[in-house]
C-alpha cells in the first residue's frame, strides 16, 4: 500500500474510532460493555486510540452471569485497572435475589437472565448509550444491525423499523428512557479481530490458547467440566487439549480441540477453519431465529 492508502485494518480502525468519538460527543451518559473477550479487548484499544491522551470518558460495564470462565473475570478486572478505567459489574445472581431476573423452573442457563440484569443497569445509571463489541459477521440477525441501534424504553430492538444509516452521519438522538446500542466493530470479521490483536500486540485471556482441560460430550460439543455442570452417570469425559474460539458461559461454550498456543497459530487456524465462530455456541443453536429473538428482547 502506498502512503495514501489504508489497509483493511486501518480502515476498520478509523471507522471505529470515528464512531467512538461520536458517542463521546453526542451522549451524556454512555458506557462501554467490556467482558474481557477478544472483541471487547479490541474495543478498549480503539477507545484508547479515540480518546488518549485524555481518560476514556465513559465507564466500563459488565454483566456477570455467575457462569463466566474465572480466567475471563480476572482478565477483565486486571485490564480495567491497567487503563485506570471505572469498571461497573452487575451480577445476574443479585438480579435474581432482587426479583429483577426470574429464572424459569429448571432453567440453568443464565443467558436469558442477562437481559433484565442489563436493562436494570441501564436504568440504575441512566445510561443513554452502550457501546458493544458485536459484529455483523457473527450471525444472520446481526447482519441487519445498524452501527447506532435504537432501543425503545423497554430496551427492545425493532428490526423492521430501524433508522436508515447513511454515510457516516449517525443519528444519535434518543428521548429520555430510550437508549442506543453502538457497535463500532460491526464491519469486522473474526479474522480482522485476531489480526488486530496481533498488530496491536493485545493481551487476551489464556483460555483462547491451547491448554489441557477435562471436558464432557454434550449435544455434539465438548463442554468444560466445572462445578456448574452436574455430570450424568453415562457422561463421556475426556482430558483434551483445547481452547475457546468464542466465549460464552462456561456451561454452554464448546471447547475446540486445538494445539494453537499463539496468536499466529490462531490466525492460521481460523484461515483454515471450516465452521463459523458461533458454531460452538449452544445458545445460538436453539433455533434458526435464536439470536433474533434474544436481540428483540434487549440482548447485547
Amino acid at each position: 500500500m502506498n502512503s495514501y492508502h489504508l489497509d483493511h485494518l486501518q480502515y476498520l480502525e478509523t471507522e471505529a474510532i470515528h464512531i467512538m468519538r461520536e458517542v463521546a460527543a453526542e451522549f451524556e451518559r454512555p458506557a462501554l460493555l467490556f467482558s474481557g473477550g477478544k472483541d471487547s479487548i479490541c474495543l478498549l484499544r480503539l477507545a484508547e486510540k479515540a480518546f488518549r491522551p485524555s481518560d476514556i470518558p465513559m465507564p466500563l460495564l459488565n454483566i456477570d452471569t455467575g457462569h463466566h470462565f474465572p480466567e475471563l473475570n480476572e482478565f477483565r478486572d486486571q485490564r480495567a485497572t491497567e487503563l485506570g478505567a471505572r469498571l461497573i459489574v452487575r451480577k445476574v445472581e443479585d438480579a435474581i435475589t432482587k426479583g429483577i431476573a426470574v429464572p424459569r423452573s429448571g432453567e440453568i442457563s443464565r443467558n436469558q437472565l442477562q437481559i433484565p440484569t442489563l436493562l436494570a443497569a441501564v436504568e440504575e445509571f441512566q445510561f443513554d448509550c452502550l457501546i458493544g463489541g458485536a459484529r455483523r459477521d457473527e450471525e444472520k440477525a446481526r447482519a441487519k444491525e445498524r452501527f447506532f441501534s435504537f432501543r425503545d424504553s423497554f430496551g427492545q430492538w425493532d428490526p423492521k423499523n430501524q433508522r436508515p444509516e447513511i454515510w457516516n452521519l449517525y443519528n444519535a438522538r434518543v428521548n429520555p428512557g430510550e437508549h442506543m446500542r453502538v457497535f463500532p466493530l460491526s464491519n469486522w470479521t473474526e479474522m480482522d479481530v485476531w489480526e488486530y490483536v496481533k498488530r496491536e500486540k493485545l493481551q487476551v485471556p489464556t483460555i483462547y490458547f491451547s491448554h489441557q482441560r477435562k471436558c464432557v460430550r454434550r449435544n455434539g460439543q465438548w463442554l468444560p467440566i466445572s462445578d456448574l455442570l452436574p455430570l450424568k452417570p453415562k457422561d463421556e469425559i475426556k482430558d483434551l487439549v483445547v481452547r475457546v474460539r468464542t466465549i460464552g458461559d462456561i456451561i454452554s461454550t464448546g471447547m475446540v480441540e486445538s494445539p494453537a498456543d499463539s496468536v499466529d497459530d490462531i490466525i492460521a487456524e481460523i484461515a483454515a477453519a471450516r465452521v463459523t465462530e458461533r458454531g460452538s455456541r449452544a445458545d445460538d443453536k436453539a433455533s434458526e431465529a435464536a439470536m433474533e429473538d434474544r436481540k428483540k428482547a434487549g440482548y447485547f
Binding site: 479474522m191 492460521a268 481460523i270
Partner: peptide, 9 residues
Amino acid sequence: MPHTQHPVE
C-alpha cells in the same frame, strides 16, 4: 473468515 493474513484493501 479465511484468506487474508496480510494487509489488503
